[in-house]
Design a protein around this nucleic acid. Structure first.
Lengths: 198, 198
DNA sequence: TGTCAACTTTACACGGTGTAAAGGCAGAAA
DNA sequence: TTTCTGCCTTTACACCGTGTAAAGTTGACA
């Protein structure tokens, strides 16, 4: 897919990802990326019209590299709604740390750049659909709490599984990734399912 | 307190707050604030060394105006842990929309300005203490879930009640403030308390 | 009258993004 | 071999927002 037919572009995407990977070094400038990719800053603009599109392209690149679609498809095979919810938390929850750096950069850009805001919102809409599917599966099993509508339940799960929430728990509060997944599964079920009887 | 002995400074704070109030107009520049406060841009720098400190000072100003301390103190009087949690959700949850604009601006600044990051983190630490108090009250009543430590429960509640979570639910998803409060109370209890029997 | 504080005006440095234009260079095509 | 083409470099610059610097204005107060 991406790895043939335009090696420079791919090198730029890979470099961008590497520079943003940890998410600690907040200030990744176009010149930093250019230098790391061993290219002139101007050549960057021959491949991407601006910083926002470069960042968005990088997220798409990561989706490909990690085959997020494939993993998602697998989670759809879960037999019960609850199992599907658990799987969804695993798949998306474990993907967050990989995209965290780019996500952070894009979210920072949101404030000033409407185009970046739209792009990020689009990507998050895909996550919302995953949440909606899990909620629908719970509703199908008849175990969804009666205290929220399906939409509200989807919104709530989506928010619980958001990148800022992950950031606060795993970066600010120091949760391990494993603990995050385990507790998210628990919290999601407690929030969305009325009686805990298995 | 703030309303005597330095009228210009107070006018600046009030203006800053007004400009940031809705949170929609993302780009509030120093020159915008100066113009709205009917002052030269340079005069701003006579009162505040930089944008970050102006924003932080504005949050403190709001704390005063809304007497957040007083309301917090009242919530401490709740008889049971669960009542205290409910009160805490009401007090803090209803304060979020008022500080949302400034919060958004400060959070955007966090990426580039370490000082702003520290300042915001300080303010959020105060919120965490409110969460810790509610969790401790639940633990004192013996109703805190056995599946998390007290620290983890505090972290989880803190994240549930974070500004980005409010933003996603009330701005992106269109929840009303009342519904937000009602569902947050429910979700918090379901997440933190084991058996739902009253 | 003089002093002081608050404020204005003008000007500028800096850093980061994005634009513009001219030229280098390798490989394919004629 | 020449020429064309695509990809890249170099240099230069405009724009924007933040923050600094310095000289001048104004009004109150003693």
């Amino acid at each position: 897919m991406s790895s043939k037919k335009n090696p420079t572009r791919d090198r730029i995407l890979k470099t961008t990802w590497e520079l943003l990977e940890d998410g600690g070094a907040s200030a990744v400038r176009m010149s930093d990326i250019a230098k790391a990719a061993k290219i002139s800053r101007q050549a960057l603009y021959l491949h991407f019209p601006n910083r926002a599109e470069l960042l968005v392209a990088t997220t798409r690149y990561l989706d490909e590299v990690y085959d997020i679609e494939g993993k998602l498809a697998a989670s759809r095979a879960a037999p019960t709604g609850r199992a599907r919810l658990h799987e969804w938390v695993v798949v998306w929850g474990n993907y967050i740390p990989k995209i965290y750096g780019i996500a952070k950069a894009l979210m920072a850009l949101q404030a000033s750049d409407a185009e970046a805001a739209d792009a990020w919102s689009d990507r998050m809409q895909a996550v919302r659909e995953g949440c909606a599917a899990a909620v629908a599966a719970l509703a199908g099993d008849g175990v969804l709490t009666s205290q929220m509508t399906e939409k509200e339940a989807t919104d709530a799960l989506w928010t619980l599984l958001s990148v800022p929430a992950w950031e606060q728990l795993c970066v600010t509060c120091g949760w391990t990734q494993d603990r995050y997944i385990a507790l998210m599964q628990q919290m999601a079920v407690h929030m969305l399912v009325d009686d805990q009887a298995p």
